[in-house]
């Protein structure tokens, strides 16, 4: 794990006067998938946002991207440096068409770039063919699952090296969830590091290399997903924790 593309050390964050994430360490290597699980309201979303530079309150700790300290970088800088967060709730720009949404994700003035606009678009369309069919529809008129694909596709237009995804499966049908995770797998194979917050424990463990269980803002259990799936340790801890 020496080649970690994203390293987080001792991160604490919150909003307003509440601290909800306390002293969290994590790292993820290119092509690796890290799942973060836990009950609602334990700080998973705040964790992802804090890493991505969306800060609404007190903040401390270190975030390293390719070894460079980006702890104080605002969200737009983080995005241009190759870290993309897809927030929960399939937030798309409803007044823009699907094509416009995707194009918006391609930040044109980045110095280091691996793909051209056409290549990026082709890659997203290969992952989610339906986005090509619906290119001229306003994003607001799509179903939740399609909007989630737009949101993911938009983030991928910038060819991020680290992709953070917050609850991609929330409120979606099984088929759509399968399609989205298939896309995430393809991305990992091409070397993108993925951190995903997932409510569904089963999906989380099957679709990741490693897994962190967060409770009350702290990492409670961490380990290889296959082992955790077999041992049932997570289920037990949650069982106890949710009481």
């Amino acid at each position: 794990m020496s080649a970690a593309v994203l390293q987080v050390r001792g991160l604490s964050a919150g909003y307003g006067r509440m601290t909800v994430v306390r002293d969290i360490d994590l790292e993820v290597a290119p092509g690796e998938a890290l799942a973060v699980v836990g009950r609602n309201g334990v700080g998973k979303t705040t964790l992802l946002k804090a890493i991505a530079g969306v800060r609404a309150g007190s903040n401390s700790g270190q975030v390293l991207l390719d070894g460079a300290d980006v702890s104080r970088a605002p969200a737009d800088t983080m995005a241009r440096r190759g870290l993309a967060l897809v927030p929960e709730g399939h937030r798309v720009f409803g007044g823009l068409t699907v094509a416009e949404n995707l194009m918006l994700g391609f930040f044109p003035w980045r110095r280091s770039r691996t793909r051209s606009l056409e290549e990026s678009l082709a890659r997203v369309h290969a992952l989610f063919p339906i986005l090509a069919d619906f290119a001229d529809r306003p994003a607001a008129a799509l179903s939740g699952g399609q909007q989630q694909m737009v949101a993911l596709g938009q983030a991928l237009m910038a060819s991020p090296r680290v992709l953070l995804v917050d609850e991609p499966s929330a409120g979606l049908a099984q088929v759509v969830i399968a399609e989205i995770y298939a896309a995430l797998r393809t991305l990992r194979e091409s070397g993108t590091a993925v951190v995903v917050v997932e409510q569904n424990l089963d999906i989380a463990l099957r679709q990741s290399d490693r897994c962190l269980l967060v409770d009350n803002g702290r990492v409670v259990v961490a380990g290889r997903s296959e082992e955790l799936l077999v041992s049932g340790e997570l289920t037990e801890t949650i069982h106890g924790g949710a009481r």
Binding site: A75, A79, R110
Partner: peptide, 12 residues
Amino acid sequence: EDREVAALRGIS
């Protein structure tokens, strides 16, 4: 429309 998501896409 959404300042936060725009920022997450690199738009200041």
